[in-house]
């Protein structure tokens, strides 16, 4: 076998083994999307209940709470970037980080300091590589976020929010994540988490579709608070924030898996193309070698015949 042929055969073999890996990753990601979507759905009754309750309390009683009052001057804003732990997901991390950078630029132009919080190894390494200070980072659960982790993040953010600005506290909190729309559509976006913009009671009543109250009943009945409106709000708001963070984490994990599946599908297709090309090239090389051998044999025979005829 010729040297050229051997080179092509080697390339085909290595591409084939890569293809197997891509294919496996594609299948794994595809099955994990389903799980991530199921988790998102499983968490939705809780967040619906919370949203409804928070809107009810806020809409009905004029309770002032530290989490809902807009500070007069905002000097520092926290940005929580929810990214992936691993790569191999196409432009997922790049798109998310671009969105985060855009938000940071916007906040800076308003004269605010930025305090960065990150979730996921990729987001963390992006900022540490650029020597940007990260206040706190979490990693290791971007694919399987849990309520406990969301609570942990929520507690840290609340702590920063309630601290004085001079002690490193922040006046508002933004969250950047990738919203999962469908397995082919997921958009990076940012939202302000705190201070809370609680939806108006009327709006929530008409906007919450399936949860709409029975016909004839007012959007929110007059609630009795147990033990008091302030205590209820105190208990509800941190949970509401945790639940918003959890839903962002879940949405991000579904998006991550979907991006990974798409990226691995493309990689598998490219590997197929490469294998095809190399097979063609190897065939051509083999044909060329055979042709050359034949020419050599025929040429040799001719030369022999000519020399024996000349004797």
């Amino acid at each position: 076998m010729g040297a050229q042929q051997r080179v092509f055969k080697q390339k085909i073999r290595s591409t084939q083994s890569l293809r197997k890996i891509f294919k496996a990753m594609e299948l794994i990601a595809a099955s994990r999307i389903q799980k991530a979507v199921a988790r998102t759905q499983a968490a939705s009754p809780y967040s619906t209940a919370l949203t409804r309750a928070v809107s009810a309390v806020a809409g009905e009683s004029n309770v002032d709470h530290v989490l809902t009052t807009e500070p007069e001057t905002i000097t520092r804003a926290a940005v929580l970037v929810i990214g992936p732990d691993r790569g191999f997901a196409g432009a997922y991390a790049a798109n998310l980080l671009r969105e985060a950078e855009e938000l940071i630029r916007l906040l800076r132009s308003e004269g605010k300091d930025i305090a960065l919080f990150t979730v996921g190894g990729k987001a963390e390494s992006y900022y540490t590589f650029r020597d940007r200070a990260i206040v706190k980072s979490w990693s290791g659960f971007s694919e399987t976020p849990t309520a406990d982790k969301a609570r942990e993040i929520g507690e840290s953010l609340l702590e920063a929010f309630t601290a004085d600005t001079d002690d490193g506290g922040v006046d508002e909190i933004y969250i950047v994540f990738t919203k999962f729309v469908s397995s082919v559509k997921h958009d990076p976006e940012y939202r302000r988490l705190l201070p809370l913009a609680v939806v108006d009671a009327d709006e929530a009543g008409s906007g919450s579709g399936g949860e709409a109250p029975k016909s004839g009943a007012p959007a929110f009945p007059l609630y009795e608070f147990e033990p008091s409106a302030e205590a209820v709000l105190d208990a509800l708001l941190p949970r509401y924030i945790d639940s918003r963070i959890l839903s962002a984490l879940l949405s991000a994990s579904a998006s991550e898996q979907a991006s990974r599946q798409a990226a691995m599908k493309t990689a598998t297709d490219n590997a197929d193309d490469l294998i095809k090309t190399y097979t063609r090239l190897a065939n051509t090389a083999r044909q060329a070698e055979i042709t050359q051998e034949l020419t050599e044999i025929v040429g040799g025979a001719d030369a022999l015949a000519a020399s024996s005829a000349g004797d």
């Binding site: 609630y223 009795e224 147990e226 209820v232």
Partner: peptide
């Protein structure tokens, strides 16, 4: 019980 007044409690 059924017919209870609306309550939000911790």
């Amino acid at each position: 019980l059924a017919g209870h007044e609306p309550v939000l409690g911790v």
